[in-house]
């Protein structure tokens, strides 16, 4: 999966589907990305997570940890696991057009 067309735009993605360049991402692409990993529809709660991740990534240059999302983003760990079952950090980063998270926490 090197290149893919999302919301009419061609973007580069890695073998697992994560964006190679987060700047390619547009909000219109999120619902399609979410469907690819079985999350449909994207609710306002999902968007809260995606927006926090995008904002934090812009400032910090890395995908926020689950702890950071809890303490800085006000998103409880329980809620995060409910919204993005079976791997919340990876799934949320996938939909938010960020690279694969590298942290252990």
């Amino acid at each position: 999966m090197a290149e893919a067309t999302l919301a009419g735009v061609t973007v580069e993605r890695d073998d697992e589907g994560f964006f190679k360049n987060p700047d390619d991402w547009k909000e219109e692409m999120a619902p399609e990305l979410a469907r690819e990993i079985g999350i449909d529809p994207l609710t306002e709660e999902h968007w809260k997570v995606i927006r926090f991740m995008r904002e934090d990534f812009k400032v910090k240059g890395q995908v926020p940890s689950i702890r950071r999302m809890k303490n800085e983003g006000g998103i409880s760990t329980k809620e995060l696991y409910n919204l993005f079952p079976k791997g919340p950090a990876k799934k949320a980063a996938y939909i938010a057009g960020l690279g694969k998270p590298h942290g252990c926490i």
Binding site: S65, I66, R67, R68, K70, S76, T77, K78, Y81, G103, C104, I105
Partner: peptide, 18 residues
């Protein structure tokens, strides 16, 4: 620095993951 929480916070987090 690595965002590894103190034990009590970590235990709560792990519990909240299910």
């Amino acid at each position: 620095k690595l965002d590894i929480p103190p034990v009590s916070e970590f235990i709560e987090m792990i519990h909240d993951t299910g």
